[in-house]
């Protein structure tokens, strides 16, 4: 099953990946990261490994697995 992993230490919470995701499977985490942002996280379902999120992430915070 494809999935994404978000590096909380790099994510700055700009959320443009959420905008880019065609399957709407990225959401805002309810927990603060150490750097003081609400990072994004995988909803846990529906990822098709299209990599649109990682393409547009300015902080190289998203790894896409297949």
């Amino acid at each position: 099953m494809p999935e994404i992993k978000v590096d909380d230490s790099k994510c700055k919470g700009c959320y443009i990946c959420i905008e880019a995701c065609p399957k709407k499977c990225i959401e805002i985490s309810k927990e603060f990261s150490k750097s003081g942002y609400y990072p994004v996280k995988y909803t846990g379902a529906d990822c098709i490994a299209c990599q649109q999120c990682s393409r547009i992430c300015p902080d190289l915070a998203i790894d896409v697995y297949k």
Partner: peptide, 10 residues
């Protein structure tokens, strides 16, 4: 160091 959402990183 770029601000959140800045295109430089991309």
């Amino acid at each position: 160091h770029y601000c959140p959402g800045c295109s430089h990183g991309i």
